[in-house]
Design a protein around this nucleic acid. Structure first.
Length: 555
RNA sequence: UGGGGUGUAGCCAAGCGGUAAGGCAACGGGUUUUGAUCCCGUGAUGCGUAGGUUCGAAUCCUACCACCCCAGCCA
């Protein structure tokens, strides 16, 4: 196979990796890593990174490290590391023995800082943070050298040792790489690589009071653990020269290559950890795993299958172009996975009572319904039928449009898996609201009997009132109505709608927390909680709704 | 006005000098006891713009334009 054929259709990262392996770089070895900072929960954007890093490693039967970038104890906690591990596992990936923390390498990273000092490539700066800021220059103007830049190696070594020993306050000194204060790339203007932080670390406790900065710790962690391809998002692109500077100037076992790809944005969602935390703190959502959150735990509670998220990430692709993905792509992926795997059931979300006047009072008949219209292996279930049934309010229209083909006065409709009924009378209350329908049924039209010659325009779902069970249903919309929300965008007041009068078919009493169903004609739902005999369902996603589309167009 | 990136359909995305894949969306139509699923069909004489090289350019060259990222002791 020619190279051209081998690379065709693959994203640019896979092409580069194939090329590097074929060229024998790093002995033709591959290792990737996913390096989250444990300062929040993972979100859909991280899912893409996880799928890329773990996914590619898997394809090559290579290791992918789960490495916590825990270099800032001020923001990090064990709660977050646990949630991250849970989320990665749930997404279907396995780091095996390759669990790591940047803090595991603190000793080596410190030694490498000493090496830099000894090579006169790093110095202790004693300027204040204000002075540091003022001498960094701007985007258009070069920075100026620190008055402490020419300290002797011995003095730097001594000062750095005292920093480490806790002899100074936070902010009194920093260790800086000695690169180029006039570089047009700000990252190269003598970046800080160590700062003093008198704070216990969730992993190393009181051991350190100096902590390495991201660029230094991240680069060295990659190199120390043998990562060959460090795949990250675009905003780190101008850090790459610094990444390479560290690799070129230090004695490291391997030389990893950093490759950047564009981050995933999904319309109507925000993925800034700061902003997500704010939504929680302000009480707008119930927590990191609120079903409206774009976090992995939120999507999980919402009922999205991990396979759908993986497939979504695959469809989205890997490029360097800024992307803003429409919700419809995510939703169609979720529907596709759920359509194949979910048992069908009938549930009425907004009930309207029907009395079938010619059906014998007190009689109950058992009907059979398929659990999946296309998959016989998924079996069937029993449906009790009786004189009093409930249908969906939206399935009745007193003054129907001509393209409404559900129930209306005098019209006929099939009750799915049961009989054809005809609406004979509409009963209203004193507020002129429809409270009940009196219908008749045609006994010759029983489903599956083959005796019916009647054709009706549609079949609607129903449940037998006296055999139904109750609970609650949560319907969700996006947290933001803006297509590309900013941090000050208004929240969607309808992001959650709670329905407290649903009626579920009897067979659902056997459902367990976490089981998913397609409620026919209503969408996909997951059992969120069970309270006594009440079931609380979350709607995962609606079905495609052509009728809703027609109505929308009319308006 | 410095540096680093990116521009192919409404949203993604293939393409790698030989005449614009695919998915989502949209729009038609068929099947259907879910207005679901499924099936069929429809979209770029055009690849940010303008020049150039070439028998031939989305692919190479030049210039321009638009958008994104960078001035934390955050990652």
């Amino acid at each position: 196979m020619s190279k051209k054929e081998k690379y065709r259709g693959k994203d640019f990262i896979r092409q580069m990796i194939h090329h590097d392996i074929d060229s024998g770089i790093n002995d033709g070895r591959l290792a990737t890593r996913f390096p989250p900072e444990p300062n929040g929960y993972l979100h859909i954007g991280h899912a893409l990174s996880i799928c890329i890093n773990f996914g590619i490693a898997k394809e090559f039967d290579a290791p992918c490290y789960l490495r916590f970038d825990d270099t800032n104890p001020a923001k990090e906690s064990e709660e977050y590391v646990n949630s991250i591990m849970e989320d990665v596992k749930w997404l279907g990936f396995d780091w095996g023995n390759n669990l790591a923390h940047a803090s595991d390498y603190f000793g080596s990273i410190h030694e490498l800082a000493l090496e830099l000092i000894e090579k006169d490539l790093a110095y202790v700066d004693s300027q204040t943070s204000e002075e540091l800021k003022n001498t960094r220059g701007t985007l258009n103007t070069p920075g100026t050298k620190s008055p402490y830049r020419d300290r002797s190696i011995a003095e730097n070594l001594g000062l750095f040792e005292r920093m480490k020993n806790g002899e100074f306050e936070n902010g009194e000194h920093v260790l800086r790489a000695k690169i180029d204060m006039s570089s047009p790339n700000i990252n190269l203007r003598d970046p800080i690589i160590y700062r003093i932080l008198h704070m216990d670390h969730q992993k190393t406790g009181e051991e350190w009071c100096i902590y390495p900065m991201y660029d230094f710790a991240h680069t060295l962690s990659d190199a120390l653990e043998g990562t060959t391809h460090s795949l990250c998002t675009l905003e780190f692109e101008d850090h790459r020269p610094l990444y390479e500077w560290f690799l070129d100037n230090l004695s490291l076992p391997t030389k990893p290559r950093q490759i950047e790809f564009s981050r995933l944005n999904v319309e109507h969602t925000i993925t800034s950890k700061r902003k997500l935390a704010e939504l929680i703190d302000s009480g707008h959502v119930e927590g990191w795993d609120d079903p409206r959150m774009p976090t992995i735990s939120g999507l999980r509670k919402r009922g999205y299958p991990a396979s759908a998220i993986r497939e979504f990430c695959r469809r989205v692709g890997i490029t360097k172009k800024d992307k803003s993905i429409e919700m419809s792509l995510l939703e169609s992926t979720v529907r596709e996975q759920l359509d194949a795997s979910c048992n069908r059931a009938m549930a009425i979300l907004k009930p309207l009572k029907i009395t079938i006047k010619n059906y014998p009072e007190g009689e109950t008949e058992i009907l059979e319904a398929k659990n999946h219209p296309k998959n016989e292996e998924m079996g069937s279930r029993e449906l009790p039928f009786s004189q009093n049934i409930l249908i969906e309010k939206d399935d009745f229209m007193e003054n129907p449009d001509k393209d409404f083909f559900r129930l209306s006065p005098g019209s006929e409709v099939r009750l799915r898996y049961a009989y054809i009924i005809k609406c004979e009378e509409v009963i209203k209350n004193e507020n002129d609201e429809i409270v009940e329908l009196i219908c008749s049924y045609d006994p010759d039209t029983k489903s599956g009997s083959g005796t019916s010659t009647k054709k009706v325009k549609s079949a609607i779902h129903w449940v037998s009132e006296n055999h139904s069970i109750g609970g609650k249903v949560n319907l969700f919309e996006t947290l933001y109505t803006d297509q590309n929300p900013k941090s000050d965008s208004p929240l969607n007041p309808d992001s959650i709608i709670e329905l407290d009068q649903p009626a579920y078919e009897q067979s659902l009493s056997k459902a367990k927390i976490g089981s998913r169903f397609q409620f026919e004609r209503n969408g996909y739902f997951i059992v969120d909680q069970i309270e006594g005999d009440e079931l609380i369902f979350n709607r995962i996603v609606t079905l495609k709704d052509t009728w809703a589309k027609i109505q929308k167009k009319k308006k």
